[in-house]
Simulated assay, not measured.
Amino acid sequence: MHSTENQTPRTLGDHTWQQSAACRSTIHNQVDPDIFFPEPDEMARIRAAKTLCAQCPVRGTCLDAALENGDRDGIRGGMTEEERDPLHRNFKSRLDYARVNAVLAGRDIHVTHAERQAVARAAYQADMPADRLARLLKVTEEHAQKLYRRIRRQIRNRAVDQQKKAKKAAKKPRGRTETVKTPATKTPGRDDLGTAA
């Protein structure tokens, strides 16, 4: 997980976390929002924004929200656009089991493709009815049944592959192995290598 604090994943559409953000302007603490949108060479503004982010109790949630919403502009979660770019590129493959467990517990949160697959697999292994999986993932029951069929196929294929490997390993001879002696070769000396062209 890329979050900076141990957090419960936010519910879809929940923006209440922003009330706790260090960058939120109040009567007593005026924050210029432009500080979070510096040019790449404006190091003083970048440092100022990151200093504010370092104090923020919801920095991880801010970063998650930026990734989930595809927000690539500005400093979010204490990271510049350039620093977040690899996270954006790899976001679909994020697999956070805290999120998987939250969905299985019925929470309505954002999950990636990899996390959706993990939810479906865990539900299948727990013999969860397809209609319940459909409600958890916000898909049709037919789609949930299709996910279960795909998982059954993956499990079957893995078992078949393991059987093939076991048979192949069993066919290998288990006796003494003969060592084949190879003739000793002379290591070339400096004079044998010639000169560079």
Rank of each mutant, 00 (worst) to 15 (best):
N90S: 12
D71E: 15
E83P: 13
R76I: 00
E82V: 12
E83C: 13
E83D: 15
E81I: 07
C62Y: 04
P57Q: 08
L87W: 06
L67P: 05
N69T: 11
R84N: 04
K92T: 03
T80Q: 13
G60W: 02
R59A: 13
V58D: 11
D96C: 02
K92F: 00
N69V: 00
D96Y: 03
C62E: 04
P57C: 08
A66L: 01
H88K: 01
I75S: 07
D64W: 11
G78C: 09
A98C: 02
E68G: 10
I75Q: 07
G60I: 03
R72K: 15
E82N: 11
D85I: 01
A65F: 07
V58N: 12
G70F: 01
L95T: 03
Y97D: 04
D85F: 11
L95E: 02
R76T: 00
L87S: 06
L67A: 04
G78F: 05
T61K: 12
E82G: 10
P86S: 13
C62A: 09
D85M: 13
Q55R: 15
G77C: 07
D73V: 10
S93T: 12
R84M: 06
R59S: 13
L63N: 05
R76L: 03
P86Y: 08
R89I: 06
R99F: 03
R59G: 04
E68Y: 07
V58Y: 11
A65Q: 10
D85R: 15
L95A: 02
M79H: 09
E82D: 11
L67D: 04
G70D: 06
T61Y: 02
E81T: 14
R76G: 00
G78V: 08
Q55S: 15
L63A: 05
P86T: 10
N90V: 01
D73M: 10
E68V: 09
I75M: 07
D71Q: 14
L67F: 05
P86E: 10
L63S: 02
T80A: 13
R89V: 07
E83I: 15
A65L: 01
L95C: 04
M79D: 00
T80K: 14
P57F: 06
T80M: 12
L67H: 06
R89P: 01
D64G: 11
R76A: 05
D85H: 14
A66R: 02
T61Q: 14
M79P: 02
E83H: 15
H88L: 06
R94H: 04
C56H: 14
T61P: 02
G78K: 12
L87Y: 13
E82A: 14
R99P: 00
D64V: 12
D96T: 00
L87V: 03
A66Y: 01
C56Y: 15
R99K: 13
C56M: 14
R99D: 06
Q55A: 15
G74T: 05
L87M: 11
D64K: 12
